[in-house]
Computed example of a mutant assay.
Amino acid sequence: MAERAFADPTDMAIARAAALFENMQPAEAAAMLEPVLAGHPDAAAGWILMARVRLALDQVDPALAAAQKATELAPDDPRPLAIASRALTLQGKHDEAMSMAYRAVIVEPKNPLWHDRVAWALLAADRQLADAEQAARTAIGLDPNEAHYYFTHGVALAALGHVDQARQALTTSLRLEPGNPVARQRLDVLNGAAPPAVEKKKRGWKLFGRRSGNVPVRPEERT
């Protein structure tokens, strides 16, 4: 109780906003964060959360602005760099998106999330596909039990024309996570069991690992 009594009110407000975001209430989280950041513009954690929230609300420009503010305040934190990379990809600014993704890797090279972001930045740009495949492979090496990284690897291998290897990667992804319809659809397309899907690109940034029903909702799988 004593610890709570002396807790920083700004930190507590950011924590409450984070809880709202985790409970899939991004608009409410943004509303809570706005006055906090207005009164405490040096709260890096608040700007990082705001960047994620804005992407979840499909507000890409404000998300990028928040990520850039967070990067200024916390230049050694890879999270705003990766969020900025994602926003820049959605804006079609692929060179900047790739640069931000690589910066995140430089800051924290042992985190597979940032290698995965590099892979998707390159895939979205449709260039340096061999480097995208290498980045995806690095992510798998750092976390061999995460299905999403095999999914990314499968997409990269398919883009390179390595269909058999892509099938193997997607099969591994589905073995680890049988309920992922995006991976299933990709594999069915490679197997000739389904036509390529034509769907609108979803721009939202959902929290990595959040589940909708039994299926994780990941931003890269929607691009």
Rank of each mutant, 00 (worst) to 15 (best):
T171S: 07
I140V: 14
R127C: 10
W114N: 11
T172F: 05
D126I: 07
H162F: 03
H148L: 15
Q134T: 10
N111S: 15
A166T: 06
D126F: 07
A119C: 12
R127N: 09
A135D: 14
R103F: 12
L123N: 03
L174A: 02
R127Y: 03
H162W: 05
P144S: 10
Q134D: 08
G179R: 04
L170R: 01
A104P: 11
G179L: 11
V105H: 15
L122F: 08
R175A: 11
E146R: 11
A135K: 05
I140W: 08
A130V: 10
Q165K: 09
H162A: 04
V105L: 15
H115M: 11
A156P: 05
Y149D: 05
V163P: 01
L123D: 00
R137A: 13
S173Q: 11
R103G: 13
A130K: 06
A124D: 13
A135L: 12
A158E: 03
Y149P: 12
Q168P: 06
T152W: 03
G179F: 06
A119W: 10
F151G: 00
A119E: 13
W114E: 00
G154Q: 00
E177T: 08
Y102S: 13
P109T: 04
L160Y: 08
P112L: 01
H162D: 00
A136M: 02
G161I: 03
A135W: 03
L142W: 09
N111W: 15
L157I: 06
T138L: 02
V118Y: 02
D131S: 11
A139D: 01
P181T: 12
E133K: 01
E108P: 14
A124S: 13
A135V: 14
L142R: 05
A130M: 05
G179Q: 14
H162N: 02
A130W: 05
E146W: 02
N180Y: 06
